[in-house]
Structures are given as structure tokens and as C-alpha cells.
Write a protein that binds this DNA or RNA. Structure first.
Lengths: 205, 205
DNA sequence: ATTTGTTTTAATCATTTGTTTAAATCAAAT
DNA sequence: ATTTGATTTAAACAAATGATTAAAACAAAT
């Protein structure tokens, strides 16, 4: 079934917004990318702003919906969750590498009302993952490191290579294939690094 | 000595470009922020684009010039360099947290010609830091992990918390003071984590 | 075939935006 | 005080941009 006009516009809008951001994206860019008449954008979505809100909502969803269930699983243990998260996220970012930078840069420009609808606090504080972490610390199985540090490290190690991709490409003459191979390697490494950070004795500096 | 008109414009441009990016920044925003007549912007800087190039160049410089010497020091060893880098960078980002996101998002929108003027490749491949790393691996003092992974981890752990700040603020009800305290803690932790990652035996998963 | 409601189009509108212009102001030199 | 060159200002311009309109094309129902 061929895509409807509405789908064509949404898809084009996603492409252009993701690559240029809200302000640099012109409605005519989207119309051209979609191969439709400019007026249809307003006909189907009222305004550029409304269309943007929809794309932003979609993007946030597509970035979080896949990983959330992992953190609420009862069957898997703490480190299994980390392994699952890292693999799934890197896989997601290999197909949609621009989403994090898109969300974060729009977030910098104005505090997206949308974000308030994502119950981050509940998610991270009431998750099984969080409970397992606190419990392991209590039992002295893990070093006592702030949950924030854990989240920052997990996100930083996983997401940053994609955000900083253009820099890393400049550093070495990194090709796209080499980059993808590195990201595959990180699926294995990041959980190991996190584990080391949480379980190893702290050496004197 | 009071700032000249030219300085007022540059300073205002830096503020507005950093917070909103090139496309969302209007020349009138800059004029207003600087408290000057709109025409003076073109009088002193020819165009918005030219002014932007100057600010971008400045920003890249301010982000790299301070850290580069560290990587070329002969006196300090490998881990001392890491400690110095992390401390200096976090300190820099505490005062100018928007610069990395500013650079990276503009870089996503179009491949900044400016960046080619930064000799990243030479910097990272000919640095004393790199030589010390390769030599330590050769002597089996460090695990053999790709230099790219090291750079990604170092940058990810150090920079990402600042890029993702709005998200982390939403996750917990993180205050600005708590965030800064966490960043102070990371000055000590990140070098330890990197050391663990490079020196610890790899445990079976 | 005609009617009816929906979708698409080309043209147009009003605002915004980057830049220029010409006159006014200022400050230093004569 | 006058001249001269630099700086600043208000006004205006042209192009770009988001949005609307009115007519045309289309498709489904009668």
C-alpha cells in the first residue's frame, strides 16, 4: 500500500527536522522532501509548530519506549538489564543516530513541554533496575556510587559516540564501517566497564 | 575600560548563538542583547554568517586550546594526563556548559569548514598521550583496547552529563547545586573508572 | 451523468528577517 | 569654530517564510 499524503509529510518532516532542527527547517524543505504541495502541510497539520510537536513526541517515544520495559523486568538481574539496554540502544542508534542530538538541542533552545509528559522520575526511581541497584549496594555486592553517576555513565558511554560522531570521524580517518564495528564492540565492552566500575576494589591513585 | 561596540556585539552574539544556535538566532536578538542599533552588526561584522564564523572559531578554540597542551606534556605520565584533562574540562564546562552542544549541533546541520582547520588527527595521533598509551599496551601494562574506545569513553564520561543536563534534571529533581557537586565528584571518579577499564582483569560475564 | 465532499494546486498575503542607505551625531585635528 | 572621518541611528528594501485562499481535480455515492 502506497503511503498516504499525511504519511509522506510526516516522514519527510522527520527526516528534515532530525537533520536540521526546528529553526533551520523551512516548510518548503519539508514539502519538497515529501514531494507534495506546500499548502498540504497546513491542510493536514495546521502549522509547522504542530507538525514539529508530533515529530518530537514520536522521536522521544521511539527512543524510550523500546528500552523502558527492560528496566521494569522482574526476570532479569541487574547486569543482564545493562547488557540488554546497551545492545538495544546501540542497535537503535545505528539506524537513527540523529535522534539524541535532535532532542537535546531542541531541549536546549526551549524547555519542551512534551518532556514533562515523559515520567522520567517515576521511570528511573520506581524501576526494578533501581531497586536491584540499591539492594545490591545494601548487600555490599556493589560499590556505593550515586545512581546519577551510573545513569550518566551508562548514557554517556552508549550515546556520546553517536553524538560526537563527526568529531571522531575527523580525529582518525574513521570510515562508516569502522565506526559500526566499534559500536558492535561497545555492546560487549560497556557492560564490562560498568561492571568494573561498580564491583572492583578502588585502587590508590 | 568599558567594552567597545564591537566587543558588545561579539559578546552578545556568543550568548545568543550558544543558547539558540545559528538558525534560531535573529540579528535583532543579538542587537537587542548587545543594546546596540541593528545596523551596527553589519557595520562591524558584514553579515550574520561572518559573525557566526567568528563565534564558532572562538568557541572551538576555547574548548580545545586549554586541553591540548596537556596531551603533549613530556613530564606527566599517562594517568596524570587523564586526571588533568578531566579536572580542567569539567571546570571549563561548569562555566560554559553549552559549548559542546552548540558545536555538535551546528556540526550536524552542516559540515563546518572551520573544523577542518583543527588538526584533530595530528593532535590525537602524534600526542605524547597517544604514544604513552601505545607503549603501555605494548608493555602489557594496559589492556589492549582501541584508542578510539578510550577517547570515546573519556569524552562521553566527561562531556555527556553537561549535554544531557536537562534530561538528568528531569530524572530526579536535581538542583543546580547537586549537579555541580556531582560534577566535582566526577573529577575524581572518571580517572579511576578509566584506570579500572584499562588495567583490571576482565571477568567472565 | 450529477452531486457531494475531499484533496490538491497555484497564487497570494502578511510578517519576519538580513541587509543597506542616507542622514545625524560624535570626536579628534586644524 | 570648522573640517574631516568615523560611528550611530531610523527608515527602508528585498527576499524568505509560514500561512491562507479560491479554484481545480478527484473520487465516491446517487
Amino acid at each position: 500500500m502506497p503511503p498516504t499524503t499525511e504519511e509522506k509529510i510526516k516522514s519527510a518532516a522527520r527526516t528534515v527536522f532530525h537533520s536540521k532542527g526546528f529553526a533551520a527547517t523551512k516548510t518548503r524543505d519539508i514539502a519538497k522532501e515529501a514531494g507534495i504541495n506546500l499548502a498540504l502541510l497546513n491542510y493536514y497539520f495546521r502549522s509547522k509548530e504542530k507538525l514539529f510537536q508530533i515529530i518530537m513526541m514520536d522521536s522521544i517515544h521511539s527512543l524510550f519506549q523500546s528500552i523502558l520495559p527492560i528496566f521494569f523486568e522482574e526476570e532479569t538481574n541487574f547486569f543482564e538489564k545493562i547488557e540488554k539496554f546497551v545492545s538495544l540502544y546501540i542497535e537503535k542508534l545505528k539506524t537513527d543516530p540523529e535522534i539524541p542530538l535532535f532532542i537535546l538541542s531542541e531541549l536546549q533552545r526551549n524547555p519542551l513541554v512534551i518532556l514533562e509528559q515523559v515520567p522520567f522520575k517515576e521511570i528511573f526511581e520506581t524501576s526494578v533496575f533501581h531497586k536491584q541497584y540499591e539492594s545490591a549496594i545494601e548487600k555490599k555486592e556493589l560499590n556505593s556510587i550515586s545512581y546519577y553517576h551510573l545513569l550518566m555513565n551508562l548514557a554517556g558511554l552508549t550515546v556520546f559516540p553517536f553524538i560526537g560522531k563527526p568529531i571522531f570521524f575527523q580525529v582518525g580517518n574513521l570510515t562508516s564501517e569502522e565506526f559500526h564495528r566499534l559500536m558492535e564492540e561497545r555492546k560487549k565492552w560497556i557492560p564490562i566497564w560498568i561492571k568494573q566500575m561498580l564491583t572492583n576494589e578502588l585502587q590508590a591513585s
